[in-house]
Amino acid sequence: MWHIIILIGILVCAFQAIRSERLLVAALWLAGTSALVAIMMYLLGAYQIAVIELSVGAGLVTVLFVFAINIAGEEPIPALSLIPKPLAWVSVIVAVGLLAWQILPLFDLPLGSLQGAGFEEMLWSGRKVDLYLQTALIFAGVLSMVALLSEEQTHKVSTHKEDNV
């Protein structure tokens, strides 16, 4: 029962996030979606990741959005979409419908018993490679973000490129 309510909540929040006119509001709806997803995770027994999702998805990412929207500014963009909306509707419904039609019945199984902990163990020793790669990803992400956002310095091209090797 809870699950159905949360399911509806998730879908409504997500839909509001893409529909609401102001970006800031959309970011907040996204945070709401994230929070509900975290609850759903909790109900699945994934306690640790639910917390992380709550803090990162609902917290950190929202903060980032707010920052970005502050810098970039709310901007009225015509609601008119660039491709015909019916086409978008139909194609998404067909694609998702195909998936749902085929996949959902196959998931009609018992949830299974909840295994005990072991998340830390799995993360720190089992999936070590993924973890190392996460640090690499963060490093790459930070480098890229710094490069993208840094203010333009005095244009060096003209001075440096004179002396071609």
């Binding site: 990741i49 072991g118 993360l123 089992g126 993924d130």
Partner: peptide, 8 residues
Amino acid sequence: LALGQSMA
């Protein structure tokens, strides 16, 4: 679930 969580 632990594996699922670490992937997530």
